[in-house]
Design a protein around this nucleic acid. Structure first.
Lengths: 149, 149
DNA sequence: ATTGAAACTCACAAGGT
DNA sequence: ACCTTGTGAGTTTCAAT
């Protein structure tokens, strides 16, 4: 899959604002709307685009605590069944199988610190195979962006 | 700001697919397009919506290594100037000021492990005020989602 | 690959209930 | 808060280049 300068401009536009009209991109780039449309189909077909998503301001719906939790697993633990349990916890937004000190590393979003403690104690710690956890609460997020094309 | 069931349906639709036409949502919900349009304006005005973004399949553009890096700071370090330096590194996608072992916690996306090492050694470690870093490479991401409304 | 035209669909604003 | 309507704008397909 080759991506030229026009493709990059299309991608940059849509990364910034996924609801921008194709014709607006077309005018900025200087080719017809039909051409942009066709290129976009091509990019989607090549699976270069993962989707278009609205991002919610989580604090405006009462979710104010973002945290990262490193999870140590017991030697006998089965990863797939633990992931299945984690998926059932809606506050768990990301889960990574990692190198380093932990086996699983998750990003979790809770209403507040108390809510976080509740979820850690009554949900995460209860999962069979989880031995020790370590929590890092984000006091402030200064950077939030995508990889630049 | 009160959010009713219709608002939730609108939000869920757009979180899943930010380019879905308003009229399609209208037909699913069962009210007019103009009503959906008005509600959306209201939600945007209330800053409940952070934006609409296209998500790129990073591996299809050659970025295959996602990592988390815990950064220890020297006692004299100035946070704001370190963040400024981190912002200049395009591979740094998230930065959090955290409680726990580290002061700063970043998410970083690189082409491969060698690229990661290069960025850690020639960029992150070179920042004045950074003392020790600890790296967690994501071997697999099993969960990636937003908070559910 | 890109274009312009055609047919269709949508967004947005105004006025009414 | 919601609806209807109108119009300008956007989307999508397609034959032609």
């Amino acid at each position: 899959m080759k991506i030229d300068g026009i493709d990059k401009k299309i991608i940059r536009s849509l990364v910034k604002d996924a609801r921008i009209p194709i014709l607006t991109i077309a005018r900025e780039v200087g080719i017809s709307g039909a051409a942009i449309h066709q290129r976009l189909r091509k990019l989607e077909k090549a699976k270069l685009i993962h989707g278009y998503h609205m991002k919610i301001n989580h604090s405006s719906i009462g979710y104010d605590t973002t945290s990262f939790v490193g999870i140590h697993l017991e030697p006998v633990a089965v990863l797939s069944s633990i992931i299945k349990r984690l998926k059932e916890i809606p506050e768990v937004l990301e889960s990574h199988y990692t190198t380093g000190d932990y086996s699983i590393f998750i990003k979790i979003m809770c209403k507040n610190n108390q809510d976080l403690i509740r979820i850690l104690e009554t949900k995460i710690q209860q999962i069979k195979g989880v031995s020790k956890i370590e929590t890092f609460i984000s006091l402030e997020q200064q950077i939030d962006r995508q990889i630049h094309i």
